[in-house]
């Protein structure tokens, strides 16, 4: 059985769902999983990781965070464990660290993969090209297959097991060191991670009207706010919320596009969402072509009503 090293992300010891998905992906590809958790509270992740199929958890100690330092430590663990794969989530951290680990191992990197399968001695991966306009199936000829996995795409697997825990000191040989974090507002999910995304476009007419989008997102309880490029360029919303070719690629369970006409660059970033709802004044807007359900009409009337209906539905559960 080949071994896969999986970089774990957690929030104060609570493992992020995307990391549980990565553990599931490694197991589905027939790998034995060694999870690596780092940072304060990393030791609190071990039970959850064992329950989701990690055979071993390496807890990396150390009080400073350096992406090059972490990548060096991970490459060392890959070598020591004789791993055939290194996996991370396609989050901002995963996409920062994984290329460095790949280069430390002198291997290519497969980014933002939507499939990861065993293929003889190696692996087969699927990932988008040209922002999802094309889908590439690729074979890895790298000695260690390094990949980041798209979030909300792979299924976690609860095994109820428990992991062997290893404590390792992290390196102190740093080239760039984290000195400060300005955290986002409490409780706001990232648009690429949230299971539900409510996005607004030009049709919202003014930055202030995004309160209607925020209210609907809040009503769901587990939704993030997204935005089209036009409204980000206009300065109405931060770039971190932009969905599409020059923003983030998202694949939530439910994507609600409000006042977004559906330029190809936007569609590229969200069309693998499970269910798409479009709300737009213009019945001919291209967004309706890919939406499962559409409402033609005035977003300013529809959004408050929808928010109310969502709150009612949640109150009943």
């Amino acid at each position: 059985m080949s071994i896969a090293i999986v970089l774990i992300e957690h929030e104060a010891g609570t493992v992020r769902s995307a990391s549980l998905e990565a553990l599931g992906a490694a197991q589905a590809a027939g790998c034995e999983v060694v999870a690596v958790a780092t940072g304060s509270d990393a030791a609190n992740t071990t039970a959850a990781l064992g329950e989701h199929g990690a055979a071993k958890v390496v807890v990396l100690g150390g009080d400073k965070y350096s992406p090059d330092g972490l990548a060096g430590d991970l490459a060392k663990i890959v070598r020591e464990q004789g791993a055939k794969a290194f996996l991370a989530t396609a989050s901002s951290t995963g996409r920062d660290i994984a290329p460095r680990v790949a280069a430390e191992l002198d291997c290519a990197l497969f980014s933002d993969c939507t499939a990861f399968e065993a293929d003889g001695d190696s692996f087969k991966l699927v990932r988008p090209w040209l922002a999802g306009k094309l889908i590439a199936s690729l074979k890895s000829n790298a000695p260690v297959t390094c990949a980041t996995l798209r979030r909300n795409t792979f299924a976690p697997k609860a095994t109820g097991g428990s992991a062997e825990v290893m404590q390792v000191d992290s390196s102190t040989d740093f080239r760039a060191v984290l000195s400060k974090i300005e955290a986002k507002a409490e409780g706001m999910l990232d648009v690429a991670e949230a299971p539900i995304v409510v996005s607004g476009g030009r049709g919202m007419k003014e930055a202030e009207h995004f309160s209607l989008i925020e209210n609907l997102a809040r009503a769901f309880g587990n939704a993030a706010v997204g935005a089209s490029r036009a409204v980000v360029d206009a300065g109405w919303r931060p770039h971190a919320e932009q969905v599409g070719q020059t923003g983030k690629t998202v694949a939530p369970q439910l994507y609600i596009a409000v006042g977004i006409s559906g330029a190809i660059q936007h569609l590229a970033g969200m069309k693998t969402s499970k269910v798409i709802v479009a709300i737009n004044k213009d019945a001919d807007a291209p967004i309706f072509k890919i939406a499962d359900f559409g409402i033609v009409g005035d977003a300013f009337e529809i959004l408050p009503r929808l928010t109310e209906a969502v709150l009612e539905a949640r109150a009943k559960v």
Partner: peptide
């Protein structure tokens, strides 16, 4: 990285307009 195939993404099934307003 060895390309095996390159494909257009699967088309989404045609959705429907639920109603107006």
């Amino acid at each position: 990285i060895e390309p095996l195939s390159l494909d257009l993404p699967p088309a989404r099934a045609e959705g429907r307009i639920i109603g107006e307003g």
